[in-house]
Nucleic acid binder design. Structure first.
Lengths: 345, 345
DNA sequence: CTGAAAGCGCTAACAA
DNA sequence: TTGTTAGCGCTTTCAG
């Protein structure tokens, strides 16, 4: 009965009338512009309160062309998105940064290629000022979609193509992988296997490359491809064990896969790290600290990378269209990694 | 260089011009209204293609007052939101249903009370046509916020207050809990413990009530409160074990907590189910099938409940303001639960 | 069946 | 400092 959904919300006009000023002045007060006499401003603010006025975003956007909203698009079925703590952490960082800048995060889930059209429409529809793209595969069409939509974009992870003005944030996957393998080597291991991620993603390829940098002549049977899930890790481990029962160390391209590998190792009766040393990648604490034994891994600061992505995008969006100011042009960011030693290697 | 972000997107006006019709006609075609001669319609469509026209949502919303977007607000820190597969499944169902109706899902994360203001502004700003509220605690102010914003709302889980026109979707928590306890009883267990969820949420209270329905005189020391995390489950189990070493069965208010309890039970040297039978709630397959041993549990169809919430809300939003048609008034939904027997009880 | 015209609510020049 | 005046791009009566 006292439901407001039908009572149309008050407009700026109403506020102005009540405060006895013009719409322009009311607008100035609402938007915090300088140069409104304190007395008037106060009257307007009171009117706003009394009427419960809230600006109509559509109207505002129509003229300012800003939404104060950023889309996060994940090229991954929801199942994986939610199952993988990696995304959670990244989104967390993004969310914090956006919130701090009064921007809304709009999460767009894509279950498959069919959803790309919808996402394309959404981006082109001008709902958001920019987009953060995630988990791209090979020649994913998402970036082009965003580009065509005219929406500034920052990509999570190095994209598969080279292109001067593509912005992204990634960690030093290759260097991290090298550190991992060297650590294993330093432990005296000689039959070192690698469980790679899906090779249609650059992170996987880069980590594999790092592995090969250190072990260029490694037995090719000591490399198996997983899919960044625990199960994938377990299956890869099983295959590795089958092919090379003498394996004495494993570098998994993610903690999540490492946890699966650990499980499989136990099933097969191997002790970790005595028989087989295991090292992961990511340092997702909720995984790496809870495996048995706790996981030695290569740390990347995922949440911080999320924040960086958001910051980068926000700066791009706000870019004053190359006016005289010497704002350094936004550039891709590659963060360092760090070995975290626990019990598994 | 060929970047489009500066080339302003084509407007309906441009499309109309190119097709040699009026803006009105172009609009009709774009929105699929009846009654435009096929030939003209075709010309318009071609113009749309050639220009790559996409309607400006802000402009459209300004006049139609519809957004075709629904907010999902989770009253839970992101950490938990992402860590708990329960949310993932629910969001999945929602997302599917919304997508099927060409609605966008806008996920609003709230890290704490401070974010409520932001959410309130967002809802009141008219960004969305409705809101789905989740994981409400006690006298959460979110529903009132939404109400004040004039945004139709559906709540996930029975709210803590009674109110004729509050829409929600929940499962039969109390009945499910009764089934769980009876099952344990049927197994011959007599020292049955309960790990409750946070008691500021109705789901927890309802499950506890169900437990008590069957075991009204149970030793109060056999009840401990958890927090819906694995750790919380483990800690609660530890407390239980400490207080009543003779416990021979546990009903945990969620699978996630049950998994923690299982871990603690193993640590303490108990065999499951021989020494202690364990039953969970939810049937989150990725948890219940993977614990050791696999978890007997009370199943609720979480994804379907998500869909139902979305459907309910969409129907409410589209409600033709009580015209003559005899659309049944939307009402809360309570779904049944079902015992799924695995190895733990 | 089609077009002309009137706004939706707001911001941003431009005047005063 | 404040008000007046144009629109932003679209939908939707209302005539024709």
């Amino acid at each position: 009965m006292s439901d407001q959904s039908f009572a149309s919300r008050p407009t700026l006009e109403a506020v102005a009338a009540r405060a006895g000023v013009s719409r322009a002045t009311a607008s100035r007060v609402v938007n915090g512009s300088e140069g409104v006499r304190a007395a008037l401003a106060e009257r307007v603010r009171r009117a706003v309160d009394e009427l419960g006025y809230v600006p109509n975003q559509a109207a505002r956007t129509l003229v300012t062309r800003r939404n104060d909203a950023i889309a996060v698009v994940v090229a991954e079925p929801e199942t994986r998105f939610f199952a993988d703590p990696f995304f959670a952490q990244q989104v967390r960082g993004i969310s914090k940064e956006l919130t701090a800048h009064d921007n809304q995060l709009v999460l767009l889930l894509t279950e498959g290629a069919a959803d790309y059209q919808r996402v394309g429409r959404y981006l082109a529809g001008g709902h958001v000022d920019g987009a953060l793209l995630f988990s791209l595969h090979d020649d994913d069409s998402l970036p082009m979609l965003a580009r065509r939509a005219g929406v500034p974009t920052v990509i999570g992870g190095r994209p598969g193509w080279s292109d001067a003005d593509t912005l992204y944030v990634d960690c030093d996957n290759r260097g991290g992988a090298r550190d991992a393998v060297r650590h294993l080597l330093g432990l005296g291991r000689r039959r070192i296997a690698h469980i790679a991620g899906p090779l249609d993603q650059t992170a996987s390829v880069d980590r594999l490359d790092g592995f090969r940098d250190v072990l260029p002549d490694n037995d090719p049977r000591l490399t198996a491809e997983g899919d960044f899930t625990p199960d994938g890790g377990a299956k890869a481990m099983a295959a590795l064990l089958e092919r090379c029962p003498d394996v004495d160390a494993v570098f998994a391209a993610s903690d999540v896969m490492a946890s699966g590998a650990l499980r499989m190792l136990r099933t097969s009766g191997r002790r970790v790290p005595e028989d087989v040393a295991v090292i992961g990648f990511d340092d997702i604490v909720s995984v790496s600290e809870w495996t048995d034994p706790p996981l030695t891994t290569i740390r990347q600061d995922i949440e911080e990378m999320g924040r960086m992505m958001a910051r980068l995008l926000l700066r791009t969006v706000a870019a004053p269209a190359a006016n005289g100011t010497e704002t350094p042009a936004p550039a891709p960011i590659v963060t360092p990694t760090q070995l975290v030693r626990r019990a598994s290697a």
